[in-house]
């Protein structure tokens, strides 16, 4: 571009100007590729249940949380299926809705999944079997009625595990709040680790903020590469944190399961939950599936 040699000061000014210009340009114009640049394959689905159903309802690891996510998506899909069937019976179509999605828990990160697929992507929730929908849009009242019917069926399933699950989530929440532990020490390694991956973030929250920002400013064609790079760095840096938290959660769960106050609920999970889910699959035409990296 420049044919004649330039004195060093001018070179510095030029570099600064270039940087300033480039930085005011949308980041989309400067795609960032990590050392293992993206071939982003879509996430898969699994139908495999854990041998012990408690792991599906009371997850201790990011990997186990896939079952938890899938279970919740299943109940949402039961709700949609029942509501849609009700609407069809009454000759109207339900209005369009935001698609159901598998969503991860901030406190129980699924690092293998995030490493491969980034933060905002998950496996695609299977579309419900479609029947020809009536043309007519329902009135507000009849739409509400059918939605309520769907909600009731979904809630009946959730009632089988929601209370003990809530108690479990409360138990592991205390793990995140304890400052004086190995968890806090491990979390303090994050900023340096992020920096080694060329990313400036003081903590997880700052990392999520940066990821959101970069994802929204990227071109559609660059999104997979950005997701891949951000996911890989996060997963790599969080490994030491999860290396502390996973055994801690697993130990907590062992005690939780052994506690007398949870005995009845745990027994119910181990005996009646899966048959009820299988029956719901048959009755409502919905598959119980889980995201798989």
């Amino acid at each position: 571009m420049f044919r004649s040699p330039r004195p060093p000061l001018t070179a510095i000014v030029l570099a600064a100007l270039t940087l300033a210009t480039a930085c005011t340009a949308a980041p989309a114009e400067r795609p960032v590729y990590g050392p293992r640049a993206a071939t982003v394959t879509p996430a898969r689905l699994s139908e495999t249940l854990p041998a012990d159903p408690v792991r599906m309802v009371l997850p201790a690891t990011g990997a186990e949380s896939r079952w938890t996510q899938g279970l919740d998506v299943f109940t949402q899909q039961v709700r949609q299926a029942v509501a849609a069937s009700c609407a069809r019976e009454h000759g109207f179509a339900l209005p369009g809705r935001i698609p159901v999605a598998f969503i991860r828990f901030s406190d129980v990160p699924d690092l293998d999944f995030i490493a491969r697929h980034g933060f905002s992507e998950s496996a695609t929730v299977p579309a419900p079997p479609s029947s020809p929908a009536p043309d007519r849009t329902g009135t507000a009242a009849e739409t509400r009625t059918c939605l309520a019917r769907g909600t009731a069926k979904a809630q009946a399933l959730r009632d089988r595990y929601a209370e003990v699950q809530g108690q479990w989530f409360g138990t592991i929440a205390s793990l995140s709040q304890d400052d004086a532990t190995a968890t806090a020490r491990a979390l303090r390694t994050l900023p340096d680790c992020f920096a080694r991956h060329g990313i400036e973030a003081a903590d997880e929250q700052a990392y999520f903020a940066l990821a959101d920002r970069l994802m929204q400013s990227a071109d559609a064609s660059e999104l997979p590469a950005q997701e891949s790079r951000l996911g890989q760095a996060y997963a790599a840096c969080m490994r030491p944190v999860e290396a502390v938290r996973e055994p801690a959660r697993t130990e907590l769960r062992t005690r939780f399961l052994a506690a007398p106050e949870h005995a009845a609920a745990v027994r119910a999970l181990r005996t009646t939950l899966v048959p009820a889910l299988r029956a719901a699959e048959q009755l409502y035409g919905v598959r119980l599936v889980f995201p798989e990296p």
Binding site: P99, S106, F119, S120, E121, A209, L230
Partner: peptide
């Protein structure tokens, strides 16, 4: 539709200052 990077945040009923629970950044 995409989910924001943080995923699910656990939040008790109540009111909070801005910057306490950021669901999505730089929207």
């Amino acid at each position: 539709w995409k989910t924001c990077s943080a995923g699910y945040l656990r939040i008790n009923n109540g009111t909070y200052a801005t910057d306490t629970y950021v669901l999505c950044s730089s929207v």
